[in-house]
Design a protein around this nucleic acid. Sequence first.
DNA 1: GACACGTGGTT
DNA 2: TAACCAAGTGT
Length: 367
Amino acid sequence: MARRPILATDALQENPPQAAISPERVDPEALLAWYDRHRRRLPWRALPGESADPYHVFLSEIMLQQTTVAAVQPYFAAFLARWPTVEDLAAASLEEVLAAWAGLGYYARARNLHACARAVSERHGGRFPSEEAALLELPGIGPYTAAAIASIAYDRPAAPVDGNWERVLSRLFAVEEPLPKARPLFRRLALDILPARRHGDFAQGVMDLGATICTPRRPACTLCPWQRPCRARIAGTQDLYPRKAAKAERPTRRGVAFLVMRPDGAVLARSRPEKGLLGGMTEVPSTSWTTDGPVAPERDAPLDAQWTVLNARVGHVFSHFALELALWRTTVPDGTPAPPGHRWVRSGDVAGEAFPSVMRKVLEHRQ
DNA sequence: GACACGTGGTT
DNA sequence: TAACCAAGTGT
């Protein structure tokens, strides 16, 4: 049987699971009342009582995946200004979208965002579906985002269980099961406490609660609308939740990046493969990045030249490894053809090119 | 189910 | 400062 997230519609058809926990004591109306007084004002949110634009919800939710509100704000504004509707985004080229996304990270999101816009345009006439199941079929939309769009944009009963929800639920019910194993349990608990109305407000209310009250450290329990039913607060064990499995260590990889300059300021660049790390993004040529580092970097140089080995190094931390890049620089004559698979990026075009943050650090050493 | 996948801010 | 953290998804 295909693996499928638990949907709100499932819960309505099943007997309440229940074990040692009693979700009936958690009052959703208390959360809604708190939300009415403390809701955060965010650019992608509708005014109280109004409904949010599904495209705005979609765009913000994709950007907010594993990304802070502060980091998203300028990108959201820039995307919306440049591509005001999902049809506009669908009409854009992937290269434009990747370049506009540069710096935000998790670049597969940009690729999927673009593919999703095209799918919505072609398969749904430019209108986002309101059903979770249909949303789930779209590229880049998983259980969380499907539930977020369904609830926030269409006010459907759905549980967009993100890190905030997990933290809130883990404390509310003192969940001992560690993440990520506890995911299905959190989903079930979330569905159990859904209100009968205002589903979008409830979804965002729990997120706001997690972001401002039920914080990772030193939660402000005295201000919490759910302080009375909260198992962790009663026991004084808030800091123990959510339980998390030990994470793998982060190794360091090393490589050499080649800064090939022309006197006019152009720099030699190439595009990364479409899949994998920094997929489809622009980079300065380099050796492969390995734990031991390159043995003979000159063999991987894009061309033969007199290299200056810079003293500076570029350090960068990715999600699953740290990178330390040595820098080799050279200047070649104007008119030097770009080697196969490479291209020249003029000085004035660097800003608009899809260089990820790590490459912008490298490029600071151009001179 | 475990791992790949970015970045910048906070503690 | 090293570790942790942020509105997850795809494979």
